[in-house]
Simulated scan of single mutants.
Amino acid sequence: MRNTWDGPSALLFREAGFKSIATSSAALASGLGRIDGTHAVSRDEHLDHAALLTSVSGLPVNGDFEDGYGKTSRRCPGYCRRCDCPRAGRHRCRGHHR
Rank of each mutant, 00 (worst) to 15 (best):
H46E: 01
L59D: 06
R74K: 08
G78S: 14
D48Q: 07
L47M: 11
L59P: 06
G70D: 09
R43L: 12
G78F: 12
G68F: 10
G78D: 14
G58H: 05
C80K: 02
V56A: 02
H46N: 04
D48V: 00
E66N: 05
S42N: 04
E66I: 09
V41N: 03
G70T: 10
S57Y: 02
L53W: 00
L59E: 08
R75I: 07
V56N: 00
S42V: 06
A50E: 02
S73W: 10
L47Q: 03
L59R: 07
D48W: 00
Y69E: 12
G63T: 14
E66M: 05
C80Y: 02
R43D: 08
C80L: 15
P60E: 09
D48N: 03
L53E: 00
L52H: 01
C80E: 14
Y79Q: 09
H49L: 06
H46Q: 06
L59M: 10
P60N: 09
G70W: 10
G70S: 08
F65I: 15
R75F: 06
D67H: 10
F65M: 15
S57H: 05
Y69I: 13
D44G: 03
L53K: 01
K71F: 13
N62Q: 12
E45F: 04
D64R: 06
D67P: 04
K71P: 12
C80D: 13
F65A: 08
F65H: 03
S57A: 13
V61P: 01
R75K: 07
S73Y: 05
T54G: 06
H49K: 04
G78H: 11
D44R: 15
G78L: 12
L47W: 02
D67K: 08
C80T: 12
E66S: 11
S57N: 10
G68T: 12
H46R: 01
R74V: 13
H49S: 03
G58F: 04
N62E: 07
V56Q: 01
G63H: 02
T54Q: 11
F65C: 04
P77M: 11
L52G: 00
H49C: 03
V41A: 04
L59I: 06
